[in-house]
């Protein structure tokens, strides 16, 4: 059923954006400079806001309320990539992850604004301007840290080595995603991966960083998670779950 495959796709997009926003929000009050307490929180806010739009579409497709989906699902039911659930690490790690993700979002949104599904098209159009700004911001940081000092360069290279394989999971298609591609609802992930690869490689190289050559096995199923997701959910869901779903907060 195409509607079902669309719902699954939308959920995976929403979950990625939500978990990344959640992780990045951990920097608020702890960033290396005050300007980034503000700017990085802003990016986190955008990611949470984008997740909200996708969860609303998910609700239209399945009837599931966003707060139930977020606060009353166990780890195995989440459909985010492992990339976004990893702990925030140091500033190089968080920035590199956000950059890799923002490039992915940009190449994806460029095409989703032409989706044959009017709701997908509408949401993508809303989000895209903010994503262009994110990418500008994170690209800038990647360059400054990649070319800054020996230490910042080493930290960026280490982050990239660790994150690269995880990022590739963004391009693993879901079951039945083919149907959505055939109907031009979402773009072909193979094409996205090429576009992503070209953009990231160009910018990372210009920032003095080397693309890892040995690629570990890419996590395959979005139902499989690291132990970090369970920890994250315990924190995320504890207040909400102190009451039954439906109690207002």
């Amino acid at each position: 059923m195409p509607n079902n495959s669309l719902a699954n796709k939308i959920l995976s997009v929403a979950d990625d954006s939500f978990i990344l926003g959640h992780r990045n929000s951990e920097w608020a009050g702890h960033a290396p400079i005050l300007e980034e307490d503000i700017a990085f929180a802003n990016i986190a806010l955008d990611e949470l806001g984008h997740a909200q739009l996708w969860y609303e579409l998910y609700q239209e497709l399945t009837g599931a309320e966003p707060d139930r989906v977020i606060f009353f699902r166990s780890a195995a039911e989440w459909r985010n990539t492992q990339l976004v659930e990893l702990p925030k690490g140091d500033w190089a790690f968080s920035m590199t992850r956000q950059f890799l993700f923002d490039v992915y979002e940009n190449v994806s949104l460029e095409r989703l604004v032409h989706s044959t599904n009017p709701r997908v098209q509408e949401i993508a159009t809303k989000i895209r301007t903010e994503e262009i700004y994110h990418l500008r911001h994170t690209s800038n940081w990647v360059k400054r840290l990649g070319l800054g000092t020996d230490e910042s360069h080493a930290r960026m290279q280490r982050a990239l080595d660790e994150l690269w394989t995880y990022a590739l999971q963004l391009f693993v298609p879901l079951e039945n995603e083919r149907e959505l591609i055939a109907e031009n609802v979402v773009p072909d992930l193979g094409i996205l991966r090429d576009a992503w690869q070209e953009k990231t490689v160009t910018h990372l190289s210009a920032s003095g960083l080397q693309i890892p050559e040995n690629i570990d096995s890419v996590p395959n199923l979005r139902a499989e998670h690291t132990e970090h997701l369970a920890e994250l959910l315990q924190d995320l869901q504890q207040v909400a779950r102190s009451e039954k779903f439906g109690v207002e907060w």
């Binding site: 929000s25 951990e26 608020a28 806010l45 949470l48 606060f71 207040v239 909400a240």
Partner: peptide, 27 residues
């Protein structure tokens, strides 16, 4: 800031993060 990750609804999470960000802006 310590409670952003534990906010019990998506709306509360967004408004709390926005508030903490505002305070940074005030600073």
């Amino acid at each position: 800031g310590a409670w952003i990750t534990r906010a019990p609804t998506l709306r509360r999470k967004i408004t709390l993060l926005a508030k903490v960000q505002d305070e940074g802006g005030h600073g």
